[in-house]
């Protein structure tokens, strides 16, 4: 039986005040992500995929609609509640890692737990465990500037996962990595999804990265365009993605 970790219903986002020139970034998007899914969000630049990620990650407020994460409606929450919600239920991975460069990798990973008032001993155990999963035990005492980009992104992933979030939100996680590191990270994410039941939503415009997902939602001009499921192997899925992208590009040309 499947349980929805994320439910988005008719979400709209309008920038600019009424009466002035407004831009509609999201024009009523609805989607559902079940527990244990690995979903990709794709779309060309300006399609609204980053806006969607921002409203889901509670960093931005939708103008209309309804978002529920792990059974909690987040659209009516106050600032402090949102902050607490983010720190407890969500895990983030960003393109530019967003590690605090003045903290060691250990301290970076420990931060979400420290914020929740977890005891120092327990923090140590949890950080060690998640570091093991991601294969970065060796670099815990180092600082971000001393490690490679791939290691940085693994550290960011560790930080996103250390507090067992309901869902992992990834924004172009491979964007700043070379192909080898990107591949390795995507394999790790797949492993997390398949063997550790981590629900993942990944925003990307890179077809190769997207091919690791189980399901992909395409967005265009603030609307959901189409959705494809991975049925066969990854290479086949990759081609399928390229086809949809070509279709999207063609629709651009027509207009």
């Amino acid at each position: 039986m499947s349980v929805a970790v994320l439910e988005v219903k008719d979400v709209q986002k309008v920038y600019g005040k009424k009466g002035e020139s407004q831009s509609h970034a999201l024009k009523g998007v609805s989607l559902t992500i079940e527990k244990g899914e690995f979903v990709g969000i794709m779309g060309p630049s300006g399609s609204g995929k980053t806006t969607l990620l921002n409203v889901i990650s509670t960093l931005d407020r939708p103008t209309g609609g309804f978002i529920q994460i792990a059974g909690t409606n987040i659209t009516q929450m106050k600032q402090n509640q949102l902050a607490d919600f983010r720190s407890q239920k969500l895990g983030f991975i960003f393109q530019d890692f967003n590690l605090l460069e003045n903290l060691s990798i250990y301290e970076n990973i420990a931060l979400p737990l420290s914020l929740q008032g977890v005891s120092s001993k327990e923090i140590g155990a949890k950080v060690k465990k998640v570091a093991q999963t991601l294969g970065i035990e060796e670099i815990l005492s180092k600082y971000p500037v001393q490690v490679s980009g791939g290691q940085k992104q693994r550290a960011a992933a560790a930080r996103a996962l250390v507090h067992d979030p309901a869902i992992l939100l990834a924004d172009e996680p491979t964007g700043a990595l070379d192909s080898k590191n990107a591949k390795s990270l995507l394999e790790t994410m797949t492993d997390l999804n398949e063997n550790h039941q981590v629900s993942i939503m990944m925003v990307t415009h890179d077809a190769f990265s997207a091919s690791y997902c189980k399901r992909i939602l395409f967005i265009q001009d603030g609307n959901l365009y189409t959705e494809i499921h991975r049925t066969g192997d990854r290479q086949q899925f990759f081609k399928q993605i390229l086809d949809v992208l070509a279709e999207l590009g063609a629709s651009h040309d027509v207009r």
Partner: peptide, 19 residues
């Protein structure tokens, strides 16, 4: 002091202070 450092936002505060 790990215990102190692991508390709340202290790791960050101290890091800023060290900087």
């Amino acid at each position: 002091n790990r215990k102190l450092n692991d508390q709340s936002l202290n790791a960050f505060t101290f890091a800023q202070l060290r900087f």
